[in-house]
């Protein structure tokens, strides 16, 4: 089921949000950090790299290492690169929907999930009120916050 705790070894392997800004400021090489985090990903897991500039070199490195990667730009100009070991799972950007539309869209998508399928969504904020509904549907889920207050949700039907 869901896990509300900050990333643990297991949680990070399913969903991880990596903000490269603070990492770079503290002297860590973003590429090294992204590579080591990606290496711990579950086959269904997703890593999101948050950056102020388009992380093209980082994505090139990850793709060269065999990962699937896709970048998108948020309304405030921040870049988010989505990375997975295999094919990237279906993803919806729900950040511009007023509540409760994001919740409804997530629940509708979850209702259509087949066994073992994964769905991810980017929500305007941590969907606290959604978690009980995901648990009630016996879905496995993770949620991670972004630095701007938005959040990514990862859901799998066991």
């Amino acid at each position: 089921m869901g896990n509300e705790a900050r990333p643990t070894a297991q949680a990070a392997s399913l969903l991880c949000v990596l903000d490269v800004g603070p990492a770079a400021a503290s002297g860590l090489a973003p590429v090294d950090l992204a590579m080591s985090t990606a290496a711990a990903l579950d086959p269904d897991g997703v890593m999101e790299i948050v950056a102020s500039l388009e992380p093209q070199p980082l994505m090139d490195e990850l793709r060269a290492a065999g990962y699937a990667a896709q970048a998108l730009r948020s309304d405030d100009g921040t870049w988010v690169a989505r990375v997975s070991r295999g094919r990237l799972p279906p993803f919806e950007d729900l950040t511009v929907l007023e509540p409760p539309l994001p919740l409804e869209r997530v629940l509708l998508a979850c209702a259509a999930l087949t066994r073992g399928a994964v769905y991810t969504a980017w929500l305007p904020r941590r969907p606290m009120l959604l978690f009980a509904h995901l648990d009630a549907r016996a879905l496995e889920w993770r949620a991670e916050d972004h630095p701007d207050g938005s959040a990514t949700l990862w859901v799998r039907k066991p």
């Binding site: 509540p99 919740l103 409804e104 629940l107």
Partner: peptide, 14 residues
Amino acid sequence: FLVWLHHCAPRVGT
């Protein structure tokens, strides 16, 4: 919003 969450959300998808 609260009414939707309590009465409608459990029925979404079904």
